[in-house]
Simulated scan of single mutants.
Amino acid sequence: MERLNKVLAHAGVGSRRRCDELIRRGRISVDGVVVRELGVQVDPTTQEVSVDQQPLKSEHLVYWLVNKPRGYLCTNHDPAGRPLAVDLVPHVHQRVYTVGRLDEDSEGLLLLTNDGDLANKLTHPRYGVEKTYLVQVAGRPSPDDIDQLLKGVYLSDGHVRARSVRRLKTQGESAWLQIILNEGKNREIRRMLARLKHKVMRLKRMAMGSIVLGKLASGKSRPLRAEEVARLRESADRAARRELHPT
């Protein structure tokens, strides 16, 4: 028996959070009976799970690495018709979703997949999968500023801190930092630095877990190799085990 949202995520319906929302809205049924309760256990080998009255079909799981340019949105639909990250993989026939988000003004490494279970493990704060960013900020952060980023600052949605901060170089009246996070709240780096009076001029994600952007050009994409997917799963599972059995 497995949780219903996990079964849906494995089938490529979306992330577990997205699947929970579909359950709440009454769009999921099991053996013809609408289910609205979260946490329901099902046996996908003997029970029929349907989305909008359409039986669930196992979908071939795909994993794509994209170098997102600035100006693209991490959503599958925008009423204003702005460019979407999924537009960068028009050759992918499966319905894929972004693993986490980069805001419209940010760029760099973005994973697209229909593997909702893996996406959940890579993005949920409690699993702590590392994300590495290259950040250009206005001004020159002092050692005290960097120490404060490591100790943490209070934002409207709680206390956040960087896993690691390195000053890389100065450029005119700006500085470049490498920042590693274990979680990814909305616009977290921008808001942390704003609290310290440093505006982010450029933000680029360089790595997520074991996957690095490398030399992939802006706007281009490539499928992850089988060994890359295996390493990504391993790092996500290792983080999940730490959550279940903290030292």
Results as ranks from 00 to 15, higher is better:
A9N: 05
A11P: 07
R16H: 00
R17Q: 00
I23H: 04
R25A: 15
V30A: 07
D31K: 06
Q41D: 06
V51R: 09
Q53C: 13
E59K: 14
W64Q: 13
L65F: 11
P69C: 10
R70L: 05
R70W: 05
H77I: 03
G81D: 13
G81R: 12
P83M: 08
P83F: 04
P83V: 08
A85T: 15
P90T: 13
R95F: 12
G100A: 13
D103P: 09
L109Q: 00
L111M: 08
T113C: 03
A119D: 00
N120V: 03
Y133P: 02
R140V: 15
S142F: 11
D145Q: 10
D145I: 06
D145F: 05
D147H: 13
L150W: 10
K151T: 15
V153R: 09
A162P: 04
V165W: 02
L168R: 13
K169G: 01
G172L: 04
L181H: 01
L181I: 00
E183P: 01
G184W: 01
R187P: 03
I189P: 03
R190W: 11
L193D: 00
L196T: 12
K199W: 13
K199I: 12
R202W: 05
M208F: 03
M208Q: 09
S210Y: 04
V212Y: 04
L213M: 01
S218G: 12
K220C: 13
S221Y: 14
S221A: 15
A230K: 12
S235M: 07
R241D: 02
R242E: 11
L244N: 04
